[in-house]
Amino acid sequence: MTVLTVEALNAHYGRAHVLADVSLTVAPGEVVALLGRNGAGKSTTLKAIMGLVPPTGGRVRLDGRDLTGRAPFEIARAGIGWVPEDRRIFTDLTVAGNLEVGRRPPVAGRTVWTPDRLFAVFPALGRLKDRPAGRMSGGEQQMLTVARTLMGNPSVLLLDEPTEGLAPVVVEDLVRTIRSLASEGLGILLSEQTLPVARAVAGRAFVIETGRIRWEGSMAALMADDAARARHLAV
């Protein structure tokens, strides 16, 4: 059973072909890693799923429903939550204000998130509820951007390099959070440049290079395949 199905997705920046026939699936409760070097097309894949980069070919389906070509807000309402790489916190708003922007009405059959439930998952945010989001540390901002997207009660979460630039302790927190979110049935597509975090949370992996999926299989198989790792991931 899959919740998110991406079929032969293509995208262009002007004339540059940046995504070529990217196909992948995510099942409910599953964490899937999208691995690749800097500039390989990870962020573009997530943005194309979200409709932020208009796909020039291929399909995006959520629970069988075709979302290709829809506006980003419609895709978000359908149940895909996107957590951008550069966080894009609303620095002028408080933590509570940021969560309010993400709030969507509950949908039957999906986990319903409220600020209080999120504060239980991210205790730091609860303590900083009324603080302007611009005056938070990078780790706290990363928690906030995940929490903000969860307020939309998504069924799939697209996490774009969430651990980039975070302190090791914060990364451990985030790894625990990702696991617990998945255990509640949320499908997660996680883009990462490096293996440690992906290895800790993901069951399957897709490796992308110059906009094409070059390798796919279980995380364990990737860890066993030294040649593939050296070819597609080693810097």
């Binding site: 980003p72 807000f73 978000a76 309402r77 002028d92 708003l93 922007v101 993400g102």
Partner: peptide, 21 residues
């Protein structure tokens, strides 16, 4: 809520759209 959305969109309207607004 409307005002909050307006202030958020003033800063980053693409992100506001990606959150379903």
């Amino acid at each position: 809520r409307w005002g909050t959305l307006v202030r958020a969109a003033t800063q980053d309207r693409e992100m506001v759209g990606a959150l379903g607004v």
